[in-house]
Write a protein that binds this DNA or RNA. Structure first.
Lengths: 346, 346
DNA sequence: TACTAACACGAAAACGTTTTCGCTAAGAAT
DNA sequence: ATTCTTAGCGAAAACGTTTTCGTGTTAGTA
């Protein structure tokens, strides 16, 4: 077990100075060909690789970007990570991951931990608890220390940083318009509580789409699921709520769900109640994950290109990290969404 | 935008030496109460946090562990990451992620990059290409440099490092035994090519289970899918292969698939061919992901507790990192699997 | 022969810590 | 009055780099 070799050891072994070794390995013309060859050969033989930590300290750059997300066992988030990793890697960056588990405290702790020199910038999606408490001091402090942040998905607009989002309102309208066009007369929405901004915006899109077609939105068709505590029997509760929605409003013939799980669960409940999909009931979900593709019937859904979001976020962040200007304008990039039609709609 | 404050700045501002500041913040009894209070108050006011990079350089520890996996958009792997992150975080470690995308080259590059000082140890699952080429020099080199590695899932046994695995043979036998007990007479297996060791072992378990019940394994019931190149039409190819399996062997009444996707696809194809599940055909999958739970019918599956695997791997790694002994024995921990019965079996 | 220029290399600072060692001065002990 | 402790602090090395600047040697030029 030999420790990694350092410049100092090479220098000592070859009877030259550390500086000379460093320059030789960088092919500096300050050093004679002869010496360079000797040093390079030696370094190659011992598989010398510069120590990243020392470089980071010297350059005050870590070449690492931090990702801070609520959870990782989630198709959308892992797609985003994949996208981030792809462009980060291409530009010589590593990614380090922090999970908040939807907890405010863990988000703050993780952020402070990573902000203490470990990374050059953040890409993040805010936890639900933070959204609920509306306490963003950790974000502002980080930004004030000159560390760039790019937010995606769950963003908060009055933070001064770049953002990568989709147009949730428009995307939701696309979905609901499709249901209306497909002759649905009574369209329900399964959504989240309003403090989750993406849920709120999608609900807003639902309402707007109905209004556009002069359909009066009915409050009892709007089911706002409380998912603050995702417990074991979470799915059961969800099923119960959806079931009573159908029992109270038996003539629902279209459902727009703001995520995959709500949509899949809706189909399951509806099938158990004897509904045929898409004949009796048409369902559209949000986010194109593995569930939508492989459910039966497969799910028509609004896809938000997660990988693309990650790629753009990483590109924005790296650009900001490497730009000299300390105060350039904040940008918001809107990624297109698309309605993917499958078997759950006519 | 104020840069993060350093010891040097505090020292200068307060007219003391850097060493004094450092000691004061550590509550060293070398420093007078008066001075300590002054320094601590100042540090708190300016939100001083020691620079991780400088600490890493000094201590030759990064308090970071590297995860190297083939892909991240995958329920099992993200579960493992979740487990790793959980115990790592509890012990004050961060996790940094490298994706190999099943490519040998990316695995090597990522490994070298991270091994150059960025992390204290690896947790990894080998890429398929590496498995195929059987070139493990990068692993051995890393280990020789004194950096501990813990392998999980796709391990290679003759590498000298800790491993966290499941008993694939036994797990597969559990599944096939269940099918046999449920009166299946003609049981097929959908598996991978043999170079993927987990696939090979599960196939072996299938064969052993049949032999145990004095059923002669029939080669035409063993479908080894070639997933070397996962292209766009990958699913279509998979469906075709499974379809012809059923056409050639119409009396198949049980299928054991070595992963979720194969199992779900099998159910889809079978349903299209008019089979009722579980009446005409019983299906058991491997790995309990979101698909298994929410498919219809929901899938009976062998669960390999991914989060547990991650937790154990992280515990092993951190223990090794923090142990003084340079040469302790390598350990292999076997995590229990369990057969979760759902609707796809009787 | 004396001066300059190019060449090849070394010394040292810097990045931000921690920690060991040494120094000074005040009080205690002799 | 002299020596011994001890409290309180500073200096400096070390982690592994990069880079600037300085310096000695040699060769070329006047």
């Amino acid at each position: 077990m030999k420790r990694k070799i350092t410049l100092k050891q090479i220098a000592k072994e070859l009877g030259v100075s550390i500086g000379t070794v460093s320059k030789a390995l960088k092919d500096s013309k300050e050093i004679s060909e002869e010496t360079k060859e000797k040093i390079q050969a030696f370094a190659k033989y011992y598989n010398y690789k510069p120590n990243n930590i020392a470089l980071s300290l010297k350059n005050r750059k870590t070449k690492t970007i931090g990702i801070l997300i609520p959870e990782i066992v989630h198709h959308f988030f892992s797609k985003v990570i994949q996208g981030i990793e792809k462009v980060a890697n291409k530009k010589g960056y590593n990614v380090i991951i922090g999970l908040s588990n939807e907890s405010f405290d863990k988000e703050v702790i993780n952020m402070e931990m990573l902000a203490s020199g470990s990374i050059d910038g953040f890409i993040m999606s805010i936890s639900k608890e933070t959204l609920l408490q509306q306490d963003y001091h950790h974000l502002n402090e980080t930004i004030n220390q000159g560390m760039p942040i790019v937010m995606f998905d769950r963003v908060v607009s009055d933070i001064r940083c770049d953002k990568v989002i989709i147009n949730d309102v428009e995307a939701a309208k696309k979905a609901v318009n499709k249901l209306i066009k497909n002759n649905c007369k009574k369209i329900a929405i399964i959504t989240t509580k309003d403090y989750v901004n993406v849920g709120r915006l999608r609900t807003q899109g639902y309402v707007e789409a109905l209004n556009d077609h002069e359909i009066a939105p009915e409050p009892e068709l709007i089911l706002k699921v409380d998912d603050k505590l995702v417990t074991e029997d979470y799915i059961d509760v969800l099923e119960e709520e959806i079931k009573s929605l159908f029992l109270i409003n038996p003539d629902i013939d279209g459902v727009f769900a703001v995520n995959e799980l709500y949509a899949i669960t809706t189909m399951k409940v509806a099938k158990n109640l004897g509904r045929k999909i898409p004949e009796d009931l048409q369902v559209i979900g949000f986010t194109d994950g593995v569930l939508s593709r492989h459910a039966s019937p497969s799910l028509t859904t609004v896809t938000q290109y997660g990988q693309k979001i990650g790629e753009v976020a990483a590109a924005l962040l790296i650009e900001k990290i490497e730009s000299e200007a300390s105060e350039d304008p904040v940008r918001t990039v809107v990624i297109e969404t698309e309605l993917i039609e499958r078997e759950s709609t006519k």
